[in-house]
Design a protein around this nucleic acid. Sequence first.
DNA 1: GTCTGGCACTCGCGAGCCATGAGTGCCAGG
DNA 2: CCTGGCACTCATGGCTCGCGAGTGCCAGAC
Lengths: 338, 338
Amino acid sequence: MLSERRLKVLRAIVQDYVGTEEPVGSKALTERHNLGVSPATVRNDMAALEDEGFIAQPHTSAGRIPTDKGYRLFVDKLAGVKPMTAPERRAIQNFLEGAVDLDDVVARTVRLLAQLTRQVAVVQYPSLTRSTVRHVELLSLAPARLMLVLITDTGRVEQRMVDCPAPFGEASLADLRARLNSRVAGRRFTDVPSLVEDLAEPFEAEDRGTVSTVLSTLLETLVEENEERLMIGGTANLTRFGHDFPLVIRPVLEALEEQVVLLKLLGEAKDPGVTVRIGHENAHEGLNSTSVVSVGYGSGGEAVAKLGVVGPTRMDYPGTMGAVRAVARYVGQILAES
Amino acid sequence: MLSERRLKVLRAIVQDYVGTEEPVGSKALTERHNLGVSPATVRNDMAALEDEGFIAQPHTSAGRIPTDKGYRLFVDKLAGVKPMTAPERRAIQNFLEGAVDLDDVVARTVRLLAQLTRQVAVVQYPSLTRSTVRHVELLSLAPARLMLVLITDTGRVEQRMVDCPAPFGEASLADLRARLNSRVAGRRFTDVPSLVEDLAEPFEAEDRGTVSTVLSTLLETLVEENEERLMIGGTANLTRFGHDFPLVIRPVLEALEEQVVLLKLLGEAKDPGVTVRIGHENAHEGLNSTSVVSVGYGSGGEAVAKLGVVGPTRMDYPGTMGAVRAVARYVGQILAES
DNA sequence: GTCTGGCACTCGCGAGCCATGAGTGCCAGG
DNA sequence: CCTGGCACTCATGGCTCGCGAGTGCCAGAC
C-alpha cells in the first residue's frame, strides 16, 4: 500500500541517517538523492511514513529518523546483501588460513568480524550436540581419578575430570576405552546417550560403578547449556555508538558478559540465511537499542554453530550482512579442511 | 620531610576524592575529618603538597585532586591492605568451590573479582612453563595424524594437531607415549626440552621423522608467547569510570583486547605481594588514566600465574588490594586441591 | 615559629535570554 | 497529485551575569 516513491523515500532516509547519524529533513533528502520531486512532496510522504510508524521525529521541527519498524522494512524489502569485493574475500581467507587450532580459528574469526564490520563480534564454538565424535580418550591420572577427553570432527576438544568410586585397573581402562570408541566414534553426539546405555553391563561388578560414573560424566558434558561456549571481541567499537553513550553502552556490556543471554540471542535465529534482529525485536532489554546480525556456519551443509555481530540499530545493514555471511562461509571451509 | 599532619591531609584528600569523585576543598576536609586545625592551616598544607606534586587543582578556585604521585605515596605509606571480612571470605570460598574444570575456575575467578572490586578483572591461566607435567597423551586420529594432549598439575589441558611425515603404527605410538611419559611426567615444563632431546634415537629410521615432529610440536606449545592465555570480565564496570567517559574508555577497551598488552602488564609486576601500578606508571599509553592491581597466585608456594584488576586511578586501593589478595589466595587453594 | 580568622580575588557553572535556522504542517493553485 | 509559499515550532549555540566554592595572602594571636 506504500507507493513506490514512498519506499524510495524511506530507503533514502535510512541511508542518510546511517551515514550522518543525524535526523534527516525533506530538503536534504531531495538534494542528496534525485527523487525528482520537491521537498514539499517528500514532506507529505514523510508524514505518511510517520503515520505508518516507519519513521519518527525526535522532537517537533527536527528531521526524521527510522524506527525499528522502518529498519525492518528496509532490511526485508529495500536493501539486499552487499557482497564482499574480491580483495576483501582474499583478505578474509588469508586472515583465517594461518589458524593452528580451533581456539585460534575462533579467535581469528572474532577479530576479523570486528574489524570488517567495526562492531562487536560474537562467535559461538561449534556445538557438541550438532557435531560427530571423532574420538573419546580416557586417561588415568591417579589410581581413582580419570580424565575424559572428547574430540569432535570440528576440532573441538572438551575434557572432564572423573573421580572413580573405586580404583580402576589399566586393563579395564583399555577395555572401556575400546568399547566406548567402537560404539560412538563417527556418530553424532545426539545419538551418544542411546548408544552407551548398556555399556556398563559387560564389566565386572567392581568396575561398574566407575564405568557408569564415566558415562554419566560423558552425558553431562553433552547437556546443552554446559557445552555452549563463545568468544566476543571488538567491544571497543561500542564507543562509536552515539552521543547518548553511557546510558546505552552499559546494558550492552552487561548483556555481552552474560553468555546465556548471547547464546539465547544467537539461538533464536532459525533462518538458514542471515538473520537480523532489530532493536526491540531482541528479547533482552539491554539490547533494545542494538541490532544483531547473525548466521549459522558449519563444515558441511549443516550449521554447527552461529556467529554474528551486535551494533547500533543505526548500522549499515547490507554491508554488515555481507560481511557476516562471507566470514561464515570461509570459517565453514576452514573447519571442513581441518 | 612531610610533616605528620600533611600526610594526614593527603590521606584525607585521597579518601574523600575516591568517595565523592569531586575535587576536595579545605573546608570540606576539616569538616569530615577531625584534623584539629582550621581550614586556613589545611590550605597552607595543601599548597605545600601541591608544590611537591602530590596533589593538583583542575582549575584555579577548585578543590584539589591527588596526582599519580599522590596516590603512590598513599598506597606505599598511608594505607594498608584492607582485609576481607569473614563473611566475604566465606562468600569467595563458596563461589569458587563449585568449579568443575580449570576453565570454570578461571571464569568464576574473573566474575568474582569483577563483582568484589566493581572493576575490570583479568585472570591469567596458570603458566605452562611454571607448572609440572602430569601427563602427555598421544592419540591417533588418522593414519598420519596425531593429537598431542598436555596435562599440567594445575589442571590445564593443551592440545595440538600433529601431521606426521609418514604413517605411524599403533605399536610405535604406544612406545613413544610410554617413553615420553616416563621422561617428563612429574617434571617441570622448563626442563622438558633437555629431557626429550635424544628421544628419537631408539626409534626405527622410518619413525624418526614423526617422533621429531611430535617433539617439536611439544616444544612449540611451551614457547612463552603462545602458551599464555587469559580471561577478562567486568568490562561493564568501565561505565562507572567518570564523566569524561568516551575519551577514556575507548583506549582502555582497546588495550584490554590486546592480550599481549595485558600479559606484559601483569608480567611487569615482579613483587611477591600485591603490586599496584598507578596511571602513568603503566607503560601502555591507553592505560595512563587507570591503575592496575595485580598479584601472583599458585597452588604451592610459588606463583604460576597472575591475576588482577584494572580500574580508574581514583579507586579504593586498600579494598581492591584486599580483594585481589584474598581471591588469589583462595584460587591457589582450589588449584592445589584439584 | 606556627596557627588562625579575615578578606579580596578567581573562575567554573548554571540560569536566563535571544537570535538563528532547520524543519515542519497546511493550504491554495497549477 | 504535485508544488510553492507561508506561518509556526523549537532545539541549538552564543551571550551575559550572579552565585558560590575555593584559593592565596596577610596581620595578629598563641
